[in-house]
Design a protein around this nucleic acid. Structure first.
Lengths: 250, 250
DNA sequence: CGATCATTTGATTTATGTCAACTTTTGTGG
DNA sequence: CCACAAAAGTTGACATAAATCAAATGATCG
């Protein structure tokens, strides 16, 4: 269980970025029942329309929330990296309208929904912390909607890398200048609403401009400030600022 | 106060579509302090980056969550119609990363955040209901991301009308075949990531195909089944199915 | 070490954007 | 209630970002 202990610590650390949980509450999270699951790359672990009885915490690798179009193509709406919980909303709405898939090989820790519900009932601030993380996820989705509507391929992809840079840096698993992101160009395309061919050309253009260099699943940001400015990125929407006041009740 | 009573009833009715709240809880919501506010069309009532101390419930008209691009253009990420609360997430994250604007003339009822927080602490199921509604909103955002990435203008706009049809029908303020939607073509464009000129052409094409007829802010769906099929619409993501089991604790 | 998967490249097509004018509707002050 | 200004909608000609199709190369993984 040392294995899943580390995973839960990662999760708690992530919650503490946004919410102020006391040691008692942290300990309660630590004592949640859980199982460790490995998912192969390109395997779906929640099918669209399924009703889940657990949530999945990503420990390693990259997972995604996807939607199936009628022609069989996939749209990716969210990326999940280490520390992220894929289906927090299913705590209140267990019938998922979406699917979850492993983009790379993914290590998950799964926690039963009923245990989580008991936890949330017993510790309302933990519920608020979960809700706060859901709100942050929704903020990211809203930002994606805006970007997809109003930015061209280059700025859109640049913005995605800014977002992932900050999120991954926040978990401590990389820096914003250099971090691992184990996804393919085709998957980036599914997320940005672009074809793999165009993603390829876009990445090469970003490299030409000395903004980003993506090579064997490592992102190197060559000039963070210029990248931020080019992408029109403002990290406020990630809600990763100080959680001093982030308790619901006092 | 009869005025705002009706507004809150509308709100409760909306919550009951997704959540199972008992009479005690409903009464508690009814007794919330609140003020009535009218906002002119094209006026912002929450600016991006502002910290709010109340939430805004839409009673009449159409409001939107928007993001400002650096060139000054606006992207709309969400529409809010009667019964919707615009900024539920600010209950857990009061610093809004987004802005709220009135697309048409809007009648709001504003409820102080601290009163809402006390309510949620006292009645955890109400908190769950709010969270569930936030989850539904996030589901809509995720759907928009997918649509913007993978559908062309015609299917995207068709999908939007399907969504609004079902949402408005659920509030009882219209039918899916015919409902009021007081927004301009330019605003539809801001939401769908298209120019007003192209929205105009797209609407005309949808009318040619006998799918939708939009005329003086009334949407008439000519053939619902064909529209749904053309748009690839599946209303599951709205979470408007039966709330029998929709209580967190039992 | 072969097979599948991922990336790269080039030629061509297409959906949507841009620009600019015009018409219709809506709202407002006299 | 009219007159007029402003906003919204419509149309056409043209430009362009990204899609599509097709093929070659390079990387990964049993």
């Amino acid at each position: 269980m040392v294995d899943t202990d580390q995973a839960v610590d990662l999760f708690i650390r992530r919650l503490l970025l946004r919410s102020n949980l006391n040691l008692h509450e942290q300990e309660a999270i630590r004592s949640l029942p859980r199982i460790s699951v490995r998912v192969h790359a390109r395997r779906d672990f929640v099918l669209p329309g399924a009703t889940v009885d657990h949530v999945s915490l990503v420990v390693a690798g990259v997972a995604a929330r996807f939607d199936l179009m009628r022609d069989g193509s996939r749209a990716i709406a969210q990326f999940f990296v280490a520390g992220d919980v894929c289906d927090l909303p299913s705590l209140v709405a267990p019938r998922a309208g979406w699917g979850l898939t492993a983009l790379s090989q993914v290590q998950l820790v799964q926690i039963p929904l009923d245990a989580l519900r008991r936890l949330v009932s017993a510790y309302p601030e933990i519920g608020a912390a979960f809700w706060r993380d859901s709100a942050a996820d929704a903020g990211v989705l809203a930002k994606w909607v805006g970007n997809m509507g109003r930015k061209d391929a280059k700025a859109r992809v640049a913005h995605l890398f800014c977002e992932m840079a900050v999120r991954i840096e926040a978990t401590g698993l990389g820096t914003r200048e250099r971090f691992a992101l184990d996804i393919t160009q085709e998957q980036i395309g599914d997320a940005m609403g672009l074809t793999p061919v165009h993603i390829n050309r876009t990445l090469m253009a970003l490299r030409e401009d000395n903004l980003i260099f993506l090579h064997s699943h490592v992102v190197e940001v060559i000039d963070w400030e210029r990248l931020v400015s080019f992408a029109g990125f403002d990290e406020v929407f990630l809600l990763l600022d100080q959680p001093e006041n982030a308790r619901m009740a006092t």
